[in-house]
């Protein structure tokens, strides 16, 4: 009996190890393939691939800086909007919302997460972009058009539209992870703050400060990961123009979008290779973002605990 159990344990352990190795192997394979396929472009352009900004398929001159810029700016813009929204609504749902409101709000948020991104994109073109253009971008451009962030003509499809759409797509992730994190706070601790005469705001500030920041940071990184790699929705509203402009009202381009746009019809070897290299840059970027997040998290946790 005992022997049988041991064999089962052994088999179970090895099987799970095999599955874990598969994940590792897949990542390495992906990385190796990206490098192998982008070799011609790496040899041809070297470092200039990430420092120049000309993307000309006719002359076979390729560089990724505008796409890199667009991916970073649109994603950070999304996070900037989505974190207050997501964390704020998580706090409301967990701490203040009456019971009858909790379930519908969280159900709708989860529903938002399940909508395919191409639907977001179409909704973006036909609903979000006109609303943003007429009710936000035009008045802001008239009043504050001298600020570099809002300069230039207003088209509609723009970095801002991409950032807002991405924020909407990312909010459900931040919301549900933040709710889980908030739920881990021991009730006793909250009651302790309140019993000492603290207000609701003080209770939340202290509790979140002590307990939840690392978790919420994790939620943010999860959202950022989604935003960096989002393709279909972004390409439909960002304007697909490989320029580096500070103004958020001007069109931009992202790495995932250019791959999706041009891969199917790319014929030249160098052209294909340059597109794969963009994939490689995107892959490295996500690795860097994740590592940086891990690093910040390890530095942040002891710092918080010492307070």
């Amino acid at each position: 009996m005992k022997v049988g159990a041991n064999i089962k344990d052994f088999l179970f352990e090895k099987t799970t190890a095999l599955f874990a190795l598969c994940v590792l192997g897949l990542t390495l394979l992906l990385f190796a393939l990206l490098i192998r396929e982008s070799l011609p472009a790496i040899r041809k352009f070297g470092v200039t691939f990430v420092t120049n900004s000309t993307w000309d398929p006719v002359l076979e001159e390729f560089a990724a800086l505008p796409f890199l810029y667009g991916t970073l700016v649109s994603s950070f813009l999304a996070i900037l909007i989505a974190v207050p929204l997501g964390v704020g609504s998580a706090i409301f749902i967990n701490e203040f919302a009456p019971g009858w409101l909790k379930t519908p709000i969280s159900f709708l948020a989860e529903l938002l997460a399940a909508i395919p991104s191409v639907i977001y994109g179409l909704w973006g073109i036909f609903v979000l972009v006109p609303i943003l253009r007429d009710n936000f971008m035009k008045p802001v451009s008239r009043a504050l058009g001298w600020i570099p962030l809002f300069q230039g003509p207003v088209y509609g499809p723009s970095m801002l539209a991409a950032g807002v759409l991405l924020a909407i797509m990312v909010v459900p992730f931040i919301l549900s992870v933040s709710r889980e994190v908030l739920a881990t706070v021991p009730q006793v601790q909250k009651e302790a703050v309140l019993s000492l005469g603290g207000t609701h705001w003080e209770m939340i500030r202290i509790v979140i400060g002590q307990h939840c920041i690392p978790g919420i940071f994790g939620a943010t990184i999860l959202g950022l990961g989604r935003a960096l790699g989002e393709t279909m929705a972004v390409t439909m509203v960002i304007g697909n123009r490989p320029d580096i402009v500070l103004s958020l009202f001007q069109p931009g381009y992202s790495m995932a979008a250019v791959i999706a746009n041009e891969f199917t019809e790319a014929t030249g070897d160098l052209y294909l290779s340059a597109l794969v290299e963009i994939g490689l840059v995107l892959f490295l970027l996500t690795i860097v973002v994740n590592l940086a997040a891990k690093w910040i998290l390890t530095r942040m946790v002891p710092g918080r605990a010492g307070r």
Partner: peptide
Amino acid sequence: KVGRGKSVNWPVGLGGK
């Protein structure tokens, strides 16, 4: 300045998918 192709380096404008 631009040339011909299935994708080109457009001097101006927005790109729609």
